[in-house]
């Protein structure tokens, strides 16, 4: 399984689409690694600096409907090649969410109010997340603040992550 712990990047906006995560002009690349330098390049968000804000981050926490728009799996790959294997949001677009689990990565949903609390408590600080996938929980820590959150993950999504992705799972079953 991939690493699911690390430093948190907070993206304080809903409806961040896959064109913002990786612009279409990079879809002519035929390796996942080529996406790396262009992660979130077209995201206009106060305080966010493309190329800089994502450095040494392994987790994204954001608002609702993350990953809407294009079906491009280049979006999860752009995250993956930057070492980001977890996105936590109030909700996801269907295709993006499926693409994450298909790649053996986590797209975790928490209630909107709880996401709001996490932003209020941690977004202003350098925050680290420790994943405890076995217990469906993670702990956020920053500046003496600490919070453990329980999440739901369906048995299928867990099976995909444990198998390493949908290709591996399908190979075993179909």
């Amino acid at each position: 399984m991939k690493n699911f712990s690390g430093n948190v990047l907070f993206l304080d906006r809903s409806d961040i689409n896959t064109d913002e995560i990786i612009p279409a002009k990079y879809l002519t690349e035929i390796t996942k690694a080529a996406m790396g330098p262009h992660l979130l390049e077209d995201l206009c968000l106060k305080g966010f600096v493309p190329g800089k804000s994502t450095r040494d981050k392994q987790v994204v926490i954001t608002r609702a409907n993350f990953g809407c728009g294009s079906s491009r799996e280049h979006a999860p790959w752009a995250l993956e090649t930057n070492g980001i294997h977890v996105v936590i949001a109030a909700s996801f677009a269907r295709i993006f969410r499926q693409n994450m689990f298909n790649c053996g990565m986590l797209a975790l949903e928490l209630p909107e109010a709880q996401i709001g609390t996490l932003f209020d408590t941690f977004a202003a600080f350098e925050t680290r997340l420790e994943m405890d996938l076995a217990d469906s929980a993670f702990t956020l820590a920053a500046e003496g603040r600490r919070e453990r959150c329980i999440f739901e993950i369906s048995p299928f999504d867990r099976a995909l992550v444990e198998a390493g992705g949908w290709v591996e799972y399908a190979d075993q079953h179909y």
Binding site: S71, R72, E73, P76, I95, Q98, N99, N102, C103, G165, W166, V167, A170, Y174
Partner: peptide, 15 residues
């Protein structure tokens, strides 16, 4: 619409 991994399994297995 699906991502490339779903497409890959679709191409290979038809599911």
């Amino acid at each position: 619409g699906v991502g490339t991994t779903d497409l890959e399994v679709g191409i290979l297995k038809g599911v």
